[in-house]
């Protein structure tokens, strides 16, 4: 096995996903099959190869430090699932 049920539980916590037992079991089997297929990457000697993040060689983009956004609180809050005045409402995080 490339990945265990315990590892699946750990990764699900890192990913902030609640999985029920049936999902955990299915996820373990599927990810195991995919990771086994991916083992072929290990067959390539890449010790002398630089990694590629993306194909562009872009310089950092510079611009004037000028405000261009239009601030419209109502428009920005319109899609929020819970709102309190001009704020996003979240569960209590400090005891």
């Amino acid at each position: 096995m490339k990945i265990s049920r315990d590892e699946i539980r750990h990764v699900a916590l890192l990913a902030r996903l609640a999985l029920d037992p049936a999902e955990e079991e299915a996820m373990t089997a599927t990810l195991d099959a995919i990771l086994t297929y991916m083992e072929k990457l290990g067959a390539l000697d890449t010790s002398a190869v630089e990694p590629t993040a993306h194909m562009l060689e872009l310089p950092a983009a510079w611009r004037e430090d000028r405000v261009t956004n239009v601030s419209d609180t109502d428009a920005l809050l319109a899609n929020a699932p819970a709102r309190d005045g001009d704020f996003f409402r979240v569960p209590k995080i400090i005891e």
Binding site: V11, G42, L44, P51
Partner: peptide, 24 residues
Amino acid sequence: MLGTYALSAGYYDAYYLKAQRVRT
């Protein structure tokens, strides 16, 4: 899940960095 696993501690080099080298 797959992406979180590939980026998680202990697996980054074996998966993500390896895949970026193969990309080259």
